[in-house]
Amino acid sequence: MADLPGDGELTCQGAEVRAGPKTGQGRVLLLACGALAREILALCRANGWDHFDISCLPAILHNHPDRIPQAVRDAVERHRADYDRIFVVYADCGTGGGLQRVCDELGVEMLEGPHCYSFFEGNQAFAAHSETEFTAIYLTDFLVRQFDAFLWKPMGLDRHPQLRDMYFGHYEKLVYQAQTDDPTLTEKARRCAERLGLAFERRFTGYGDLERELAREAQKTLAP
């Protein structure tokens, strides 16, 4: 099973990864956000889902949700002849239903939920507190590692730190949704909260609904 490229490459370029022994031999393609690559690969390894290939689009699309539907469409069209089935490992991700419409049109399925913060925590659990926790900003493992690339620099805070309170003045806390137990990452997340001037909360989520949905997909495609 191949190793993943670094986070920088996942952010800007995406990656092609095989879960099984030989690239291109999987019958199912998981077409995913680069920010989910490590989590998907970890789940494939843990569950022996070696019939999945994984193609990750650049994770930085997270910052440009309007570009996600077309990027997914292009990737599905590029790959579909090579696989029995393609599963899109994106939630709505700020596309306002645009990605679902593309998936419906192409006849492929995608993850349920509004975004990764929701499905990592579990869509139901997240929805239950969404009306009372809207002053929180969320970071996943990947986003903690890539905090500067996804948040600090694109918002110009490296050049204009005085803008911080214009962006985050109404926020109250940073919730680190931990997929893994990693003290170093927790410390980095705490530091992210400090840099934004926010309170810090660590919330262990594991893989949440991502694991459940991939297990369902694996069951469908492994069934005789």
């Binding site: 918002m155 110009g156 805070l157 050049r159 204009h160 803008l163 214009m166």
Partner: peptide, 11 residues
Amino acid sequence: LFVPEVLLAAN
């Protein structure tokens, strides 16, 4: 121009 620069101008 991008959002940070627009914000500075607005400020």
